[in-house]
């Protein structure tokens, strides 16, 4: 029974990884861009939700005018919106300026490197603004739970699992059936041909970043509600696990990221159950390294992803 409880905990934890992993896989699949700002956007959403609901956040440039403190429901909405804006800002300064002049081996990494720059900027600005301590998020009661056959399921976690799966299904539908989705898939397949056929990459690329911001924002606030605490470091661990989940599922595959994220969550919980908390890092990263060496395309990925140049 304890084992089943750990399995359910693993799935709940995995649902957070899934959301972040889908954000990663979306930018890699469409733009061939490993966006390292994703963990910070996740952290930003959580920290902003906390700051808005406890202190209020000052409006930039106008001293003495503060937004908030506000009820936690409103704080969540504002935090997600702010994360989407931050993500668009990242797009303006990283991806817009990608110029392939020589086509050499490290040139595709330019947006990756500037996203590492943004990672440092956002994370450290949050540290400067709100300190490095872990803060308690004054949300709804996280320990509200139902008992199904001896397994305790926390209600907020159950709700967020449903929300996450709903969002992923919706995203999948958008990519498959809408005009925007067709455009995005065309860019992913062949940017030049898409351009010739009238797909406007300049207008579609920001959509990817908006979706990224939305997913990270949701993951951040759901994490804040479920675990009841936020800190400027909370993105580091989740981000790494989400990357592991994405690679395991296969770069560019959305359902792959879902399965991969859940597997990583389960692996983590079961490793803790059988071997103790200290071995989690080795288990998760060892799994990732093995995947990269033996089957780099992951469980559901495609060979071509991660090699092309946009």
């Amino acid at each position: 029974m304890l084992f089943l409880q750990q399995v359910s905990n693993g799935i709940m934890l995995g649902s957070v990884y899934v959301t972040v992993a889908v954000a990663f896989t979306l930018t890699i699949g469409v733009l061939n861009f490993l966006n390292f700002t994703i963990p910070t956007l996740f952290m930003l959403a959580g920290m902003l939700a906390w700051a808005l609901s406890t202190w209020g956040v000052p409006t930039w440039g106008v001293p003495f005018v503060h937004i908030g403190p506000m009820p936690w429901q409103a704080a969540l909405l504002f935090a997600v919106a702010a994360t989407v804006v931050a993500s668009l800002l990242v797009e303006r300064f990283t991806f817009r300026f990608l110029k392939t002049r020589y086509g050499d081996a490290t040139e595709h990494a330019i947006p990756l490197v500037s996203s590492l720059g943004f990672l440092l900027i956002i994370e450290n600005l949050v540290r400067i603004g709100y300190g490095t301590d872990t803060q308690r998020f004054p949300g709804p009661q996280a320990d509200m739970s139902v008992n199904i056959g001896g397994i305790f399921l926390r209600v907020p976690q159950l709700v967020s699992l449903v929300i996450v799966l709903g969002i992923v299904a919706g995203l999948n539908w958008i990519l498959r059936h809408s005009r925007i989705g067709r455009g995005l898939r065309a860019i992913a397949e062949n940017p030049d041909a898409a351009n010739i056929l009238g797909v406007q990459a300049n207008k579609l690329v920001p959509v990817v970043f908006m979706l990224t911001g939305l997913l990270c924002g949701l993951a951040g606030v759901l994490f804040a509600i479920n675990y009841g605490e936020v800190s400027p470091q909370m993105g580091d661990d989740i981000g790494s696990k989400a990357i592991a989940g994405m690679v395991l599922g296969g770069l560019g595959s959305i359902w792959g990221a879902v399965i991969g994220g859940l597997i990583i969550g389960l692996t983590e919980m079961l490793t803790i159950h059988f071997f103790g908390a200290d071995t989690v890092q080795v288990a998760v990263w060892g799994l990732l390294l093995l995947t990269l060496f033996l089957r780099p395309q992951g469980l559901f990925g495609h060979h071509s992803i991660g090699k092309g140049k946009l």
Binding site: G117, F118, N124, I128, G129, G131
Partner: peptide
């Protein structure tokens, strides 16, 4: 002054170095 951050936060001074490193990286890549 610009951002109205409340004082008495305990951010390490190191944070500033990394903000500057990050800004320079973004500008350099652009």
């Amino acid at each position: 002054l610009a951002m109205g951050f409340q004082g008495a936060r305990t951010a390490p001074d190191e944070s500033w170095r990394f903000v500057i490193l990050g800004i320079l990286t973004v500008l350099m890549m652009m």
